[in-house]
């Protein structure tokens, strides 16, 4: 493994009691080629090679690691990358020449030959979308100085799916909402987000449930406004509201139901420090309560970044990567429990 898997985007950031991370992603296609799904094998290989050449010369101030996802050894790596939110599940499951370029701190990831020729993302810890937008824009400028992107003055950047056309930009944020969950108020957030044309998904995207009380929210509109205005509409209105709701719910728990709250938190610590077999769902549920306890200052011995990392490291591909011997499915739950006990001491 060439990188440490100590993702910079899982560190503490602004508003990180509620906001785990934020992401700005651009969809781009190289002019003169069909979109990936309709390109010939030769054209896909050409896009692959052209991208590798351009990205290799890209000066980002740090390395850009290139992973060819067709290589046989890539199978386990791909699952790991999906668990780390660095490639999409779709990208892992496709069967054509494709790659991902990643900086060692995992802030930058560029998928090659996913639905669009290039999907470039910048991930940052906590809530700092302006930073993410500036960074991804800087990368876009650099790539664009060497490649012509498909663009029309009316529709903007042309994408395989018309729902991304225009700016091609997608902002999304991973929110941790255990307070609203305990207060049984989470449906209000879902409804409010839907009313604002925002998509709500789980920790692992479309279809995944809200494991660990994580909710991923992203903008749907990509056309008719500038990148900065799209961000404003997204981050200025609903996000502060949701963050405030969540903090209010936590305050109420602390002031009115503190015994109940502590019972949830310390019971979670007890189980995770003693369990010998645990599945991913239960582990995430209990880790969520520990994260809540850390944010409320009730667990001074644990660090937020450690807990953030744990959510990832208990996933199957991560456990398999850390294990010296191959793990069968039933051995995963044992390895998971052991790893959590070791980490939480």
């Amino acid at each position: 493994m060439k990188w440490s898997t100590n993702s910079a985007w899982l560190e503490q950031g602004p508003e990180s009691d509620v906001v785990l991370s934020c992401r700005a992603r651009l969809a781009r296609n190289i002019a003169g080629f069909p979109f990936v799904a309709r390109a010939s094998d030769n054209q896909r290989a050409e896009i692959f090679n052209l991208s590798r050449q351009v990205l290799r010369q890209l000066d980002l101030g740090q390395d850009l690691l290139w992973f060819d996802l067709r290589e046989a050894a890539a199978n386990e790596l791909m699952l790991l990358l999906v668990e780390r939110h660095l490639i999409s599940r779709h990208h892992a499951e496709m069967d054509l020449p494709r790659a991902v370029a990643i900086t060692p701190d995992e802030r930058v990831s560029i998928m090659v030959n996913e639905e669009d020729h290039l999907r470039m993302q910048f991930l940052a810890p906590g809530l700092q979308f302006e930073h993410a937008l500036l960074e991804i824009n800087r990368i876009d400028d650099k790539v664009e100085s060497r490649l012509d992107f498909a663009f029309s003055s009316r529709w903007g950047y042309l994408t395989a799916c018309p729902t991304n056309v225009g700016t091609g930009i997608r902002f999304s944020t991973m929110l941790h909402l255990p307070g609203l969950k305990l207060a049984k108020d989470i449906d209000r957030v879902r409804r409010a987000a839907k009313d604002m044309h925002l998509a709500v998904r789980g920790y692992y995207g479309e279809g995944s449930d809200s494991a660990g009380d994580f909710y991923q929210i992203s903008n749907q509109i990509t056309l008719g406004a500038s990148e900065a205005d799209i961000l404003d509409a997204f981050s200025a209105k609903i996000l502060p509201q949701i963050i405030a709701y969540e903090r209010k719910a936590r305050e109420v728990l602390v002031s009115k139901r503190s015994t109940y709250l502590d019972d949830r938190i310390f019971r979670a610590v007890g189980v995770l420090q003693s369990a010998r077999i645990i599945d991913v769902k239960e582990a995430m549920k209990l880790l969520s309560r520990i994260r809540l306890g850390v944010c409320l200052g009730r667990l001074p011995d644990f660090e937020l970044a450690t807990i953030n990392q744990l959510f990832l490291r208990i996933q199957p591909a991560h456990l398999r990567m850390m294990s010296p011997t191959p793990l069968r499915d039933e051995e995963l739950s044992i390895a998971r429990a052991a790893f959590i006990r070791k980490t939480l001491g």
């Binding site: 400028d141 664009e144 663009f151 529709w155 903007g156 056309l223 008719g224 500038s226």
Partner: peptide
């Protein structure tokens, strides 16, 4: 279709590639 999907938007007003006529 795009107008419906994009809340009534009909034109791009965001970033423009330098080669196609300028930055934001």
């Amino acid at each position: 279709l795009i107008e419906r999907a994009q809340c009534g938007a009909t034109h791009h007003t965001g970033k423009t590639p330098r080669r196609a006529g300028g930055s934001i």
